[in-house]
């Protein structure tokens, strides 16, 4: 059990970092690399498609096209020739969110990432995104200063950096996107009104007595209260 699977009988030949290996056809690229004997430190994190550590570029022998995938999510294919790109140097200037604003009429993204204007809409980033995001779409939304649209389109970005590796004008879409999302959520979405109210109540000590009473209760008393508690539909 665990993460090590009984190899299925069907094997495929793939090339990992320049060396050919025979691996079971049912494995993900990540597990195939481990099957071949690599004990990974780089290029692996969550093993579930959430952390972006395992970006992989491959082509199929005999074909010239490059493909992009997450090693932990992609099942091996016969003739795969692959390499992982665990990190890619991506521009991220120093900024302090507190010194930026999305409501002063300027586009804060242009202030921090002026190079975004060099995007010429080639769509290579979109084609390389293993999350199938409309990367060019969010980059152009950022360029226009439409942070709401950029936040929505880029939300599922796991910052794997594969699009950065491909952009001909050397942009770093994931880094621009997180700045856009943070500014959008902070400046353009209203704060939760009920939360403001609750903070005031806590500060006024409204719940102190009730909590103190609960803390002082015996296990039996608590059990009874718990069993009788009302459950919101």
């Amino acid at each position: 059990m665990a993460d090590v699977e009984a190899p299925s009988t069907e094997m495929v030949e793939i090339t990992i970092f320049g060396q050919r290996y025979q691996v079971p056809a049912s494995l993900t690229v990540l597990k195939a690399i481990e099957y071949a004997g690599y004990r990974l430190v780089h290029g692996v994190g969550c093993r579930s498609g959430f952390c972006g550590a395992c970006g992989t570029v491959y082509r199929i022998e005999g074909q010239y096209r490059l493909h992009y995938a997450l090693a932990c999510q992609k099942v091996v294919e016969p003739g795969m020739v692959l390499a992982q790109i665990p990190v890619y140097p991506a521009q991220r200037p120093d900024y302090k969110l507190s010194e930026l604003s999305a409501t002063d009429g300027q586009n804060p993204i242009l202030e921090v990432y002026p190079e975004i204007e060099t995007c010429f809409g080639c769509n290579t980033c979109t084609k390389s995104c293993p999350q199938e995001l409309d990367v060019m779409g969010y980059v152009s939304a950022l360029l226009r200063g439409d942070l709401a649209e950029a936040a929505d389109l880029s939300f599922d970005c796991i910052m794997c950096g594969l699009c950065v590796s491909r952009c001909p004008t050397e942009l770093a879409p994931p880094n621009m996107a997180i700045l856009g999302r943070r500014l959008y959520a902070r400046d353009l979405v209203p704060r939760a009104p009920h939360l403001t109210q609750r903070l005031k109540e806590i500060e006024e000590g409204v719940f102190d007595e009730e909590i103190a009473k609960l803390k002082a209760m015996s296990e039996d008393e608590l059990r009874k209260l718990y069993a009788e508690r009302e459950i919101e539909k």
Partner: peptide, 27 residues
């Protein structure tokens, strides 16, 4: 845990964490 909870949600909100909200900001 329970008394700090609303404060950390506000802290995250102010740092630009994108919670699911109604248009008026209601969580």
């Amino acid at each position: 845990l329970v008394m700090d909870a609303p404060f950390v949600i506000r802290w995250l909100e102010e740092m630009g964490c994108m919670f699911d909200k109604e248009p008026d900001g209601t969580m």
